[in-house]
Structure formats: structure tokens, C-alpha cells
Write a protein that binds this DNA or RNA. Structure first.
Length: 1019
RNA sequence: GCCCGGAUGGUGGAAUUGGUAUACACGUACGUCUCAGAAGCGUAUGCCUUACAGCUUGCGAGUUCGAGUCUCGCUUCGGGCACCA
């Protein structure tokens, strides 16, 4: 009987489906284990080749844990709201719901083919009303909450109202009322609060709500017609689509994630995540310690610049106007030679003198027109303008000029900095450019060339700080600032509040309506607020989001307008791991009983691209739900693994690095390039032996064009340029025969030369124009599978592999490629190796029938295994267990191969050996093992079989093979009984004829014997 | 610029606590089976050598009886953050 993987795999996939083999039970005696994959966005392109990598790994762990007696929850679902479906809808008019459903069907078919053991009864889709009902419900809870600094957790807004009613706003730290920026806060008493009308109360509460409607600078993407969060932007353009993004002041919904900054940071220490991922989150949160400091300006104002207008109105007295800055270097305060404001800073207008008005206004217009991308690209370009006004230095009393510069960001700190050009390179560049004074206050640097940024040295020219080192000076400066009431020691975070509204159609409606200009959230009984139908998926003519198109019929109680923006992509994914625990609950997002049972995700697998997006938001919502007592856990996932990215076949593989000097010659007769390293020829590139054409990449700058050459005529066939700007062209190759020329001319070149049917050399030369850089060369072999069929070129679809080799081969192959966390190019080299392994395993169970040629029958022996067979088996059990516990799947497959090779060698077909082996292998290759398990006479799925125990006794060797080394170099080995003690081993080794030979009559200075390991003689 | 993580044969990679570097697989070569192909099976394969010998984990030092593994310096690739005060 042949190994007919197609039949076997479809049969077992059907069996599992029919028997609900992988359904997780909510409770029971078994310990629980929760394995979660990041659910996919069902794109039209189908399952991406990178997806199965993580899914296979998690499925192996899942199946292994089941064998080990755990009750495993392993669900799957779809993150089915999102931009691509909507963009497609805009183009085609097709409802995103339809395309999404079609895509999901494709995904499901693809997933099923690979034999995953998901509990599909728990499937969730974020775009289903039964699901987003609870996303909306959570939003309402967040809206109805504030962050109480006294208890350091989120609480219902009622507890804040209680405080305001009794204590007034004096009962609240200033920080809470005004956000992170410390300002004069107008006081109101509890009685006054009660007297405020509903609108005023609502406005004040909006400053506290964890989901709030507020005016702030946002990243506006005109092409997508929506605002974006910081993590949705890469290098100044939108992550999806790569459209430009600009800064814009807008009123929209946000989440006050900043209140959780400290806890999100501290929580990382409790997590078993990779250091690099935790580091990425730490960078993103960006905690920095320093001090606030106020500088008195020369103007006075009756308005005191509170962002909350209703509070503002109650203040009528005149007061001094201060510029507040945040600094991490309060020690350098005596080095302040100017103060810089962000162009958007609220005091800019009032501080500008009439003489400077025109210049300042021009500058502000200039910076406004500059896109975020331009600003980032032109970081070296220093721009700024003087306001004409001055502040008073708080310690020296000197007049310090106030400048405006776009290197100061309105979104961070206070949008104003105290500039210390001597000890901050950005301030230094600004000061040099505008010829402002540079005051040295820390010794140790040379200020004629650059700023001295290091936090080392002694303070000078700094009054009471003189003579201190930086650390002491920071402390003393803060103490002095606080004593004088000029500011206080403070922690600042880079993390921004998360923009929550999206001016798009395909997302969860925000469950809010407006009555008398006051936003109200819906009652739970009114959920879900169903996404309305619209005639077009575009904004209205008035620029309102697409949902406004439904406004004529879509009204709360037929009267009040709903919020027209929808939730961002991350809303639904911020709590889906909880819904899997109780997916059909109609009265709660998940019952407390079940969330208490399943608790945390034990293993979470997904891509590292979610490091600063999803993985931060899901932690935020988890902490929030814990604060309100809905769940018992503080972090969503204890252990997280990022599977590596999978690149395309055309990506570079391994490189050989060679200095240009080492390219010795190009022989234009034999058409060979000879590369030498350390005087040795290491590679000979034969370009004369190629196929029908050569193509050569020509480099103009850092990027390239490609030129194709006809091999026979040596003429250029076609040229494609990837870079428009040809100003940097230093050299253009006219024909392939010029290879000798570009070597001689030391030009910057990059090329790829097809040399044979087996593969080609990708030849990357990184010479700079000085000719002293290096070249890297790599050899690429064509995918083996390409030999069988042309369509295997550039395989990206897992279905095709399942079709040709089977799902078990695909699973093993993806794991065998290398460590899970490592990024690797996708290529199908070597897939025959793992496929051959499965066939070899299959053959262990079959013997020639004696009938027709090649006929085999299932034949298994009941005999007792030999000692060697038991050793092979138990060695494998031990290694596989260890490998799987540390997620080293590639090595476990090697170990299976070794095991099967050894068993094949001794023609072992004994039940007592093969049965346990099948169980070990079944997490990796579930179909073939189920089939053989059934052939062995079992009627139940192998899934339920307990994992075999490993017995140390079988691994004990009678003999030890001692390597004998001299000065650390192994010369020969000696097999000795394991019972010998170290001195006995030494005595035997000394007498050994080989030892005598290598010692050559000399007495070893020292002999080291490591018992059961090695012998080393020092001579 | 700052912060993480890498670099091992022709290729993907192994080496778990400092103890025989290159397991396992691919590729390649030769052989075998076959009318033939596919698929098997067998042998060889780090480099340099006819062979002995010698050399080898990006480069250079150091610690150690012994270093791919530990320490320091450098090169380079990948990732994250980035006028964040």
C-alpha cells in the first residue's frame, strides 16, 4: 500500500470535523492550556505564506499539550473589519461584507487543508454584530470610566462625580484635570459643580473619560480620508497604501491609553516575551524622567490657556503668563540661552511682537504646508523665527529670547523647550544657525565643533550647582525648582493617546449619539448599533464620514444623530482572546466563570509587526477590564513568540563577502571571473556557460535599474529603470563584455548573472566611488520543485504544496526550515527531504507481500524490542519533549529523522517501538500518524493517546567514547567502560600506544580527565 | 544618532551547562535497481591535499587545560525608536 497522502488527509480532516475531536471543554479535571494565534485579516489574496508558519507551530504545541493531558483551548477567527475590503468596495461598489465573507471562505478552505486542530465552534468574526455588540459595550465602559490616581486604576465615572460634588475640583490633582501639562487650574467648589448645567458638566467630565471626544493634533491621511494612530504610520506615510500623512487639529474620539503608560511599562517585566519586543514597547512608551519648569513671560493675560473652555470662562483675573517646558536635564538650567516653542504652541500669537508678526506668520504658514514626511526627510534643515519676546530666566533673572522652531513637537511634553545649545545637539544646531549664544555649564566637551551631550562631567558657571557632577546636579536642580515653586520633578511619556475614530465605513459604529451637542452613549439594551447601509462607501460632499450618508433614516429615536466615525482596526482585536472563552454568550462579552477558568493565554504566536499596535492595545484593554472587575487577569498573554517573517523566493540568501581587491581577474576569452580570498581562489564565475541571456543590474545610486542582454549578440535587449533621477549615474554598462571594464574602472556596480541551469550567481558589488567598499556574492539554486513543474516557480500558496506533497509534508517542511523566530526567505529547496522522511516512516509499517512487484502489506511485529531499539525510541522521546518545550521544532524534526533512519537500518517493525513513536510524531504530522494508528488496530483518534514516558534506564551506555586531546586538539578516541573512575581512565590513556606516540617520550605537564566527557593532555 | 538581535560548509541549519564543530536535510558526484522514467537504495562530500600533515564558526585581542559558546574592541547584516527636549 502506497503512502496516499491525499486520501489519508482528506479522510482524517473529515473525521475530525465529524467527531469534533478538538472541541475544548469548559472545565473538568484536566489542567487548562490556552494556545492562541493572532487571527488573520481575511484579505483577497488568500492565506499568506507567512501565516501557516505560526499556525503550524501553535498547532504542534496544542496537540502535544493534549497528549500531555491538558484541556487545550485552541480557537481561530477573523479580524474582519478593515481598510482593504473597504477600498475594494469603493472601487467596485460591492459591499465589504460580501467580499469579506468570500475571503473568509477561501481562508477556511486553506486552513482546513493544513489539518489544524482548531475548535471551530468557537470561531469569532469582528464584523459580526453578535461580536461587535460587545466591542461597543466595552467602548461604553471605557467612556463611562476615568482613571483615579488615588487608587491607581480605572473606575466608573460616578466615583469622580462624587468627588467633584463634595470636594469640587480642588479634590483632584491638577494633573488629572489638565492632562499631563501642569497649568493654573481654576477652582470650583462642590456646590458650584452642582450648579453647572449639563453641557458644562459633560465638557468637564470629557477631560477625564478614558474614551473621550477631544480637540487635538492628529495624523490626517487625505488619500484614505481618515485619521490614523501613530502605529499606523511608518516613515511619515500610512502603513496601508503608503499615502502621505499630515498633522491636523481635529475633534475626534481618543482613548486615554497614556493613563496606563506606567503600568504598561511595568507589566512588561512579568511577561515571557522576547527582549526585542519588550524593548520595542518600552521605546514606544518612551518614559523619561525630568522636571517641568516655568519661565515668566513679559505679557499678561486674562485667559489662562486651559484647554477646557468652560472652565476657562470662570476665570476673570489677570495673571502672569508663563511658558512651561519639560526637560530631562534640569542640571543645565544655567546654560539656557533661548526658549523654543513649537509653531503650533498656543502662546505663539500672544507672544509675537508687532515687528516680528509678519515673519512669524509666514513661518507658521510655511511649516503648516510642510507634510509630516517632508519634515522628517528634511530633519537636517534648520528653520525657525524669533518672536520678539523674552522670558525671564528663573535663576539668573536675565532676559532670554523666545524663538519658534519646528524641531519642537507640539505633541510631546509642553510643546516648548528650554534650549541649552552647549549640551543638546539639536539646540546647538539651532543656535549655530541663528547665531545664538552657547553657554557652557558642564566641563569636558569641545563646544567649538559640537554639543557636549554626555551626562558626565562637573558643573561650571552654574551658581549653586557648581562643582557637582551631573547626577547630583539633576537632583539638586529639581529640589531648587520645586522649592521655588517653578515646577516639579516629573515623568514624561512619549506614548500618545490613541486616536479611536476613523472616518471610514467598514468598522464598528461608535455607540454614541448627540443631543444638544452633548455626546451620550447608548444603553446596553440598544446594542448592537448595527452598521447602516449606505449608497456609496465614500465621504459625503460636506466631508462627513460615509456613515453620514445613512443619516436621513439612521437616527437615535428617529431624532438624534449618531456618531459618524467608526472604530479603528485594533478595537475588535483588543479583546477577542476573551470572546473565544465564551463565544456564544448573548448576555455578556464573556462570563466571569469562564474567563476565570481559562484566564490568560498561555502561548500566543504572531508577527512582530504588531509590537507597538495590537500588542499594546490588547494589554491596555485587558488592564482596563481587570480594573473594572470583569476579568481577573492583568496581562493577556504570558508567553509570546513572534514567528519570523517569510520573504519571497527572490530574496537574497547567504552571502559570501569578498573585498574588491580579491577579484583577481576577468578572463574575457573563457568569460570567467575569478575571486580570490587570502590569495586563494575561492570561486570562479563562469558566465560563458549560461543559458539564453544574461541580465545585469546597473546601479545608479542606492537603487537600481535592470538591463537585459542577449547572450549571443551581447546587445542590450531591454532596460528598466527603477529610479528616475539619473544624476547619480556614474557608469552605464553597454554590454556584458564590459565586465572587465567595470572591474578595472572601480565603478559602483551591482549585477546578477545567470550561469547555469542549476542556479545563478547573484552578484552584488557595493563599491563606492572611492573604490574601497566591498562586494558580496551569493549563489542561488533554483527551487528543486521547479524541475517537476514550471508553475512551482515562486510558490507562495500553501495549497499547492498540500496538493503535491501533502499537508503533513508542508507542516514538517515549514518547521524544518529553521528556528521559528528567525526570518527566512520562502523557497522550496529541500521539501523532498521531509517528504522522503514520511515515506520512509510509512515503509517501516509495511513489508513486501511476496506477490506482485513492489506490492507491500501492513506488517507489524509483536516481538519485544531489542536494547538498541529501545534506546533509539527513548532517546527520541527525550529529545522531542525537550525540543517542544523550548519551541525548537526544527531540531525535533531532525531527531525524528535520525530515529526513523536508525529503525530502518535494523528493519524494526515492532509495535512496542512504533506505537509510541507515532504518538510523538502526531503533533507534527497528524494525518499520517492517525492513519497508521488506525492500521495498528486503534479505533479512537491518536489525539487522545497519552504521550509516552521516557525511561532514562534505556539510555545508559556501558561504554564511553573518550576523545583524547593534546593541548586541546583531539587526536584519537578511546572507548572505555563507563564504570571507570577518572584516575583509572587517566592510567589507561597514559599507557595507550597512541598516547605514547603523541607524547614522544615527553611527560605531560598536566592531565585533565572530565569524567564521561574528555581527556586532555597538556604537553 | 540611540536601543535590541544576528554572522557556523555550495545551501537551510545543529551543537541544551565552556568539553570530539559542521547533527539533520538540500545540492552535487559516482554506483545500484529499471526497457526507460519516476521513486528507492548505497557510497562520498567543510577547506587545502594523491596521501600524510595542516587549516576552519565575520575580523582582532583576552580569559581557560580546552572557546562557535565567556570578556573587550572592530566589521557587517537585520529589526525597533528617532529633532521626544
Amino acid at each position: 500500500m502506497e503512502y496516499n497522502f491525499k486520501e489519508i488527509e482528506s479522510n482524517w480532516q473529515q473525521f475530525w470535523k465529524d467527531h469534533k475531536t478538538f472541541a475544548a471543554k469548559d472545565g473538568g479535571d484536566k489542567p487548562k492550556y490556552y494556545v492562541l494565534d493572532m487571527f488573520p485579516y481575511p484579505s483577497g489574496a488568500g492565506l499568506h505564506v507567512g501565516h501557516p508558519l505560526g499556525y503550524i507551530a501553535s498547532d504542534i504545541v496544542t496537540r502535544y499539550k493534549r497528549h500531555k493531558g491538558f484541556n487545550v483551548l485552541h480557537p481561530m477567527g477573523y479580524d474582519s473589519f478593515g481598510l482593504p475590503a473597504e477600498q475594494y468596495a469603493i472601487q467596485t461598489g460591492q459591499h465589504p461584507k460580501i467580499t469579506t465573507e468570500n475571503n473568509i471562505a477561501v481562508y477556511r478552505r486553506q486552513l482546513d487543508k493544513i489539518g489544524f486542530s482548531f475548535d471551530w465552534d468557537r470561531e469569532v468574526r469582528t464584523s459580526n454584530p453578535e461580536y461587535y455588540k460587545w466591542t461597543q459595550w466595552i467602548f461604553i465602559q471605557i467612556f463611562n470610566s476615568w482613571y483615579n490616581p488615588r487608587t491607581n486604576k480605572a473606575e466608573n465615572i460616578k466615583s469622580l462625580i462624587a468627588i467633584l460634588e463634595t470636594e469640587g475640583c480642588k479634590g483632584i490633582d491638577h494633573d488629572i484635570l489638565t492632562g499631563d501639562i501642569e497649568k493654573e487650574v481654576p477652582a470650583f467648589t462642590g456646590e458650584e459643580w452642582k450648579a453647572f448645567d449639563e453641557k458644562k458638566q459633560s465638557d468637564i467630565l470629557m477631560n477625564f473619560r478614558l474614551a473621550y471626544l477631544g480637540e487635538s493634533f492628529v495624523n490626517w491621511c487625505p488619500a484614505l480620508g481618515t485619521v490614523l494612530a501613530n502605529d499606523e504610520i511608518k516613515d511619515g506615510v500610512s502603513e496601508r497604501g503608503g499615502y502621505p500623512v499630515e498633522r491636523k487639529m481635529m475633534k475626534q474620539w481618543s482613548m486615554r491609553i497614556t493613563k496606563y503608560a506606567q503600568r504598561l511599562l511595568e507589566g512588561l517585566d512579568t511577561l515571557d516575551w522576547t527582549e526585542s519586543l519588550k524593548e520595542a514597547q518600552r521605546n514606544w512608551i518612551g518614559r523619561s524622567e525630568g522636571s517641568s519648569l516655568r519661565f515668566k513671560t513679559s505679557i499678561q493675560s486674562r485667559s489662562n490657556s486651559l484647554s477646557n473652555k468652560s472652565v476657562q470662562e470662570i476665570t476673570t483675573e489677570f495673571s502672569d503668563v508663563y511658558i512651561e517646558v519639560f526637560t530631562t536635564r534640569p542640571d543645565t538650567v544655567f546654560g539656557v540661552s533661548f526658549v523654543t516653542l513649537a509653531p503650533e504652541h498656543e502662546l505663539v500669537a500672544s507672544l509675537t511682537t508687532p515687528e516680528q508678526k509678519a515673519a512669524v506668520e509666514a513661518y507658521i504658514i510655511q511649516t503648516k504646508n510642510r507634510s509630516e514626511r517632508e519634515r522628517q526627510a528634511e530633519i537636517a534643515k534648520i528653520t525657525g523665527v524669533f518672536t520678539g519676546s523674552y522670558v525671564e530666566h528663573p535663576f539668573t533673572g536675565k532676559q532670554v529670547p523666545i524663538w519658534i522652531g519646528d524641531y519642537v513637537l507640539v505633541g510631546y511634553g509642553t510643546g516648548a523647550v528650554m534650549a541649552v545649545p552647549a549640551h543638546d545637539s539639536r539646540d546647538y544646531a539651532f543656535a549655530k544657525h541663528f547665531d545664538l549664544p552657547i553657554l557652557e555649564v558642564i566641563s569636558g566637551g569641545d563646544l567649538s565643533k559640537e554639543a557636549y551631550d554626555a551626562k558626565e562631567g562637573k558643573l561650571i558657571n552654574s551658581d549653586f550647582l557648581n562643582g557637582l557632577d551631573v547626577k547630583e546636579a539633576v537632583k539638586k536642580a529639581i529640589a531648587e525648582i520645586e522649592a521655588k515653586g517653578l515646577g516639579k520633578g516629573k515623568v514624561n511619556f512619549r506614548l500618545r493617546d490613541a486616536v479611536f475614530g476613523r472616518q471610514r465605513y467598514w468598522g464598528e459604529p461608535i455607540p454614541v449619539y448627540y443631543k444638544n451637542d452633548i455626546p451620550y452613549v447608548l444603553e446596553e439594551s440598544e446594542l448592537p448599533l448595527i452598521l447602516p447601509e449606505v449608497d456609496k462607501y465614500l465621504p459625503t460632499e460636506d466631508g462627513e464620514p460615509p456613515l453620514a450618508r445613512a443619516s436621513s433614516s439612521w437616527k437615535k429615536d428617529g431624532k438624534y444623530e449618531y456618531e459618524y466615525s467608526t472604530m479603528p482596526g485594533w478595537a475588535g482585536s483588543s479583546w477577542y482572546f476573551l470572546r473565544y472563552m465564551d463565544p456564544h454568550n448573548g448576555s455578556e462579552f464573556a462570563s466571569k466563570k469562564l474567563t476565570d477558568y481559562w484566564k490568560q493565554v498561555d502561548l500566543y504566536i504572531g508577527g512582530s509587526e504588531h509590537a507597538t499596535g495590537h500588542l499594546l492595545y490588547v494589554r491596555f484593554w485587558t488592564k482596563f477590564l481587570k480594573d473594572l472587575g470583569y476579568i481577573a487577569i492583568d496581562e493577556p498573554a504570558k508567553k509570546l513568540i513572534n514567528q519570523g517573517m517569510i520573504g519571497g523566493t527572490s530574496e537574497l540568501m547567504k552571502e559570501v563577502r569578498i573585498n574588491r581587491e580579491e577579484i583577481e581577474e576577468y578572463n574575457s576569452v573563457s568569460k570567467e571571473i575569478v575571486i580570490k580570498k587570502d590569495g586563494r581562489e575561492i570561486k570562479r564565475l563562469d558566465i560563458g556557460n549560461g543559458s539564453d541571456h544574461c541580465h545585469v543590474y546597473l546601479s545608479y545610486d542606492s537603487n537600481l535599474g535592470v538591463e537585459y542582454f542577449d547572450k549571443e549578440n551581447k546587445t542590450s535587449i531591454n532596460t528598466e529603470l527603477f529610479q528616475e533621477n539619473r544624476a547619480n549615474v556614474k557608469y552605464v554598462m553597454n554590454s556584458v563584455l564590459n565586465i572587465d571594464k567595470w572591474i578595472a574602472d572601480q565603478n559602483y556596480y551591482r549585477g546578477s548573472i545567470l550561469i547555469s541551469d542549476e542556479g545563478y550567481w547573484n552578484n552584488d558589488v557595493y563599491y563606492d566611488f572611492e573604490g574601497n567598499k566591498i562586494q558580496s556574492i551569493s549563489f542561488k539554486t533554483k527551487p528543486v520543485v521547479e524541475k517537476m513543474s514550471k508553475r512551482w516557480n515562486n510558490v507562495v500558496n500553501p495549497d499547492d504544496i498540500c496538493e503535491t506533497f501533502g499537508a503533513d509534508t508542508l507542516r514538517l517542511y515549514e518547521m524544518f526550515l529553521g528556528p521559528l523566530e528567525q526570518s527566512k526567505p520562502w523557497n522550496t529547496n529541500g521539501i523532498t527531504g521531509v517528504h522522503g522522511f514520511l515515506k520512509k516512516l510509512w515503509r517501516l509499517f509495511f513489508s513486501p507481500s511476496g506477490g506482485g512487484q513492489g506490492e507491500v502489506v501492513f506488517a507489524i511485529s509483536p516481538d519485544e524490542p531489542t536494547k538498541a531499539e529501545l534506546k533509539t525510541l527513548h532517546k527520541t522521546i527525550k529529545k522531542i519533549t525537550e525540543d517542544i518545550e523550548r519551541f525548537s521544532f526544527n531540531t525535533s524534526i531532525s531527531n525524528f529523522m535520525i530515529c526513523v533512519n536508525e529503525l530502518t537500518e535494523v528493519k524494526c517493525n515492532k509495535r512496542a517501538v512504533l506505537e509510541p513513536l507515532l504518538i510523538c510524531l502526531s503533533p507534527y504530522a497528524p494525518h499520517i500518524t492517525e492513519e497508521l494508528w488506525k492500521q495498528l488496530g486503534h479505533t479512537e483518534s491518536i489525539t487522545l493517546a497519552p504521550f509516552p514516558d521516557f525511561n532514562e534506564a534505556y539510555l545508559v551506555d556501558d561504554n564511553v567514547n573518550y576523545p583524547v586531546s593534546f593541548n586541546g586538539k583531539v587526536k584519537f578516541t578511546l572507548e572505555l567502560p563507563a564504570t571507570l573512575t577518572a584516575p583509572e581512565v587517566e592510567a589507561i590513556v597514559r599507557q595507550n600506544e597512541n598516547t605514547v606516540k603523541f607524547l614522544d617520550g615527553k611527560e605531560p605537564k598536566k592531565v585533565i580527565v572530565v569524567h564521561k566527557k574528555i581527556v586532555n593532555m597538556v604537553v
